[in-house]
Design a protein around this nucleic acid. Structure first.
Length: 418
RNA sequence: GUGAGCGUAGCUCAGUUGGUUAGAGCAUCUGGUUGUGGCCCAGAAGGCCGUGGGUUCAAAUCCCAUCGCUCACCCCA
């Protein structure tokens, strides 16, 4: 038997209900905040991601689904959306048409990692890329959109953490200081963190190792290395979040793994989804557009994991989808009447009624059971003596009341059923 | 890439000092008198006990291998 590829999931009809609910909330919120949807191809030239995300990041160095196509192009299934959106922004000169582009997306992403709870090889994200403004209002707005979406789908166990990484010069100074601090304690660190000393010093900060965290208690804080402008930007963002009544905590150790972040970074986590607790992550990336050979343009955005959010919803029992029902189930008392049943179905469906019928030849009892299973509001009996007289029985499944009506009196039938 | 756990019916799971024909609940299907649901009752169908090898008179059960799944680490949504 051929099975789905490891780390990929079928989304069955039962689950689609939850997906649609979430996506609906996302679309409504995006509309309210005036974000425009953008869709980009599912794959891109590999160079876009290696240049955009950062050669040394884990995503690029070991998680990408890359291959060469028949024309010997190096292509990659997109592991995240920011690089693609920025590419489209540059390619279509969106910055020239409008000073500020507020974009959102909903799309599958691909990363070849070992799957676990809340981590898949094909997963789905929605997110925002707001390109074209330095204003801290936009940082705050982006966080607000993410937070409100999560709140609106019914999640309560949410933690918003924010931090600022400043500008590259400030980050470099901090990196050096941190490296210094750590070199002295190198031997006491976990193996993983010792390795990170060479690859990415900043990431030692969010090591999960308890001992590491203890050692890091007295480590320098990025916030002490920020210049006045960076500090002011950060203070502004915090003030705006407060005014929007979004609860947050400042976490100087929140560095995030992608190279392109500057200034604000943030994360929204839940304790309800297992080890992969980040439902949403994002921040400002003022240098990426330029780095991808576009005009120097500031930007800020986030990405949120749909599967993780749904996991959180499930464990918080955040929403209970409404029971599906159908308007009419057609029951034929006589199997000779298939054509007539089909015509009746067309007639009702033509009047915007949700109709179901039996496609096998089954007893009336079996058909009734099916009608019940489908949550039919009404059942129409076709056949028998009354049918010879041009009449049908309509049964209200809730009350059990049954009415005999003439087939030709469509007005009356619709009146009862509507 | 590293580590741990688990594979028995469509689903959730019972089933070892190795011993008849492998079970339950839910779901499915059919009945419970002429043409009527839910609840209830009766019955049916559904399994190479993940796969391959080994030990044994005898393996779902013990051993080895292999595949698959899950969770965790790394890292990220």
């Amino acid at each position: 038997m051929i099975k789905a590829i490891k780390g990929t999931n079928d989304i069955l009809p039962e689950e689609i209900v939850e997906w649609n609910y979430l996506i609906n909330v996302v679309q409504k919120k995006m509309q309210l905040f005036n974000y425009k949807e953008i869709r980009t191809p599912i794959f891109e030239h590999t160079a876009l991601f290696s240049r955009g995300i950062g050669e040394s990041t884990d995503i690029v160095s070991k998680e990408m689904y890359s291959f060469t196509d028949r024309s010997e192009n190096n292509v990659t299934l997109k592991p995240e959306m920011t690089a693609s959106v920025v590419r489209a922004f540059i390619e279509h000169s969106l910055g020239k048409q409008s000073g500020l582009n507020k974009l959102f997306y909903i799309s599958p992403m691909f990363r070849q990692e070992r799957p676990q709870a809340g981590r898949l090889r094909q997963f789905h994200q929605f997110g925002i890329e707001a390109i074209g403004s330095h204003n801290p209002m936009l940082d705050a707005e982006v966080i607000q959109v993410a937070f409100e979406i999560l709140r609106n789908v019914g999640l309560e166990d949410l933690t918003v953490t924010i931090n600022s990484l400043g500008i590259p010069e400030e980050r470099a100074k901090f990196s050096a200081a941190l490296k210094n601090f750590i070199e002295d304690r190198k031997s006491k660190l976990s193996e993983d963190s010792q390795r990170r000393l060479d690859t990415n010093v900043l990431r030692i900060l969010d090591s999960k190792d308890r001992n590491d965290q203890n050692l890091l208690k007295e480590a320098p804080s990025i916030l002490d290395f920020l210049g006045n402008e960076s500090l002011e930007h950060f203070e502004n963002v915090k003030a705006l979040l407060k005014s929007a009544e979004i609860p947050f905590t400042v976490e100087p150790k929140l560095v995030r793994g992608l190279d392109y972040y500057t200034h604000t970074t943030f994360e929204i986590t839940s304790t309800k989804v297992g080890s992969q607790s980040a439902l949403c992550g994002g921040g400002r990336y003022n240098l990426l557009v330029e780095q991808l050979e576009g005009p120097s343009t500031p930007a800020v955005g986030f990405a949120a994991g749909i599967e993780r959010i749904l996991l959180a919803c499930k464990s918080e029992q955040a929403f209970t989808p409404a029971k599906e029902e159908i308007d009419i189930y057609l029951i034929r008392l006589d199997n000779q009447l298939e054509k007539k049943t089909f015509e009746m179905a067309s007639l009702f469906r033509g009047n915007n009624l949700k109709v179901e019928l039996d496609y096998s030849t089954r007893s009336v009892k079996a058909q009734m059971r099916e009608a019940n299973k489908y949550n039919a509001r009404f059942v129409v009996f076709i056949g028998g003596e009354e049918f010879g007289n041009g009449q049908i029985q309509i049964k209200n499944m809730q009350t059990g009341d049954q009415t005999l009506l003439s087939i030709k009196d469509l007005e009356k039938i619709l009146q009862i059923v509507k």
